[in-house]
């Protein structure tokens, strides 16, 4: 049986969904008692992932609990506190939802979110998530490769970048009604086309096999596991191929603090804090946070360093 080669899951080694599901079923039936006791079958997955990692880190990588993933979020459209997105996203309506894909493409198209999921399917991707604020999680996303979507609209040869746009709905998103008066809405992000086409880059529509919760970016968000979390724009409404570098919200706000590339890099500090290590959310206690060293490209160097050959990562951070 294929296992998650964590923490360096090559795209080819990701467990196909049917295997994953059968394993889940197997675990579930073998451990009804455990499940009944309220322990997720994913804890078995956790143990598995933990065994693979053997570098003497204080704690093995294992999936962060769904509860932590859904109660500790940076989603400033709902508020700046980590608990705001869960607490204040109750009014957010994420279905029906349309995603417009346009720009320098031969076949621009508008998809309904459920059509999108039907057409491109759902894979399980267990990815590390490294926030620019020096904390991290391990998240079992469900989604599909952005590359598949881009191929479907046939990018023109001039297309060099992909621009993403989120939503503006102050009536449903309290953070857009003032409060954080630094970012402007809609939130926007961008990738170079080769980054966007990379098989690790996904559009996620679920987490832990559940429909994407509002606070995590319902109904569809970007996940680029070798970049800081803020690149993962949430609640995407529009994807536009362009020939020039598109504006990215945090980069526009403070270009010296948030680079356009925002590749995870322990050697390049944020001006306001060290990036050398990261706090593992959901581990440790009130009196002792669990930490581990941060890895270049968040541990995905083998897969993605080729994209940045010849670039000065200190300058283009």
């Amino acid at each position: 049986m294929t296992v998650y080669r964590y923490p360096r899951p090559a795209p080819s080694e990701i467990t196909p969904r049917h295997l994953f599901l059968s394993r889940r079923k197997m675990i579930a039936s073998a451990a009804m008692g455990v499940v009944a006791a309220g322990v997720s079958p994913y804890s078995a997955l956790a143990a598995e992932a933990g065994q693979i990692d053997g570098r003497g880190w204080p704690a093995p990588d294992k999936p962060t609990s769904l509860n932590d993933i859904t109660h500790y979020n940076n989603f400033y459209e709902f508020g700046t506190d980590k608990s705001d997105p869960e607490a204040l996203s109750g009014d957010f309506v994420s279905r029906p939802w349309r995603v417009q894909v346009d720009g320098l493409v031969d076949h621009p198209k508008v998809w309904d979110i459920d059509e999108l999921i039907r057409q491109f399917g759902q894979q399980d991707r267990l990815y590390r998530m490294r926030c620019v604020e020096a904390w991290s999680m391990v998240i079992p996303w469900n989604g599909f490769e952005l590359g598949a979507l881009l191929r479907a609209v046939s990018p023109k040869s001039e297309a060099r970048y992909v621009a993403f746009t989120s939503v503006v709905r102050p009536e449903q998103m309290p953070g857009q009604r003032g409060g954080a008066f630094s970012l402007t809405w809609p939130y926007t992000e961008g990738l170079r086309l080769d980054e966007a086409m990379h098989p690790l880059t996904i559009l996620a529509t679920g987490v832990y096999g559940q429909t994407m919760p509002a606070q995590n970016g319902a109904p569809v968000r970007l996940v680029v596991p070798w970049k800081y979390g803020f690149k993962g724009i949430k609640s995407i409404t529009r994807i536009t191929l362009t020939d020039r570098q598109p504006p990215a919200s945090w980069n526009v706000m403070a270009p010296n603090e948030y680079g356009f590339y925002a590749n995870v890099n322990p050697a390049v500090d944020h001006p306001r804090w060290s990036q050398a290590s990261e706090q593992i959310i959901g581990q440790g206690s009130l009196f002792y946070t669990a930490r581990k060293p941060t890895q270049l490209f968040n541990g995905y160097a083998e897969q993605v360093s080729g994209l940045y050959k010849g670039m000065d990562l200190n300058k283009d951070f």
């Binding site: 509860n67 932590d68 109660h71 500790y72 980590k82 608990s83 904390w135 706090q279 959310i281 959901g282 440790g284 206690s285 009130l286 009196f287 002792y288 946070t289």
Partner: peptide, 18 residues
Amino acid sequence: DLTAGVMGNLGPDPAHYC
């Protein structure tokens, strides 16, 4: 805060909460 933190009621990151 200390009581809530020890009892696990300060969310996923009790240290930063405190």
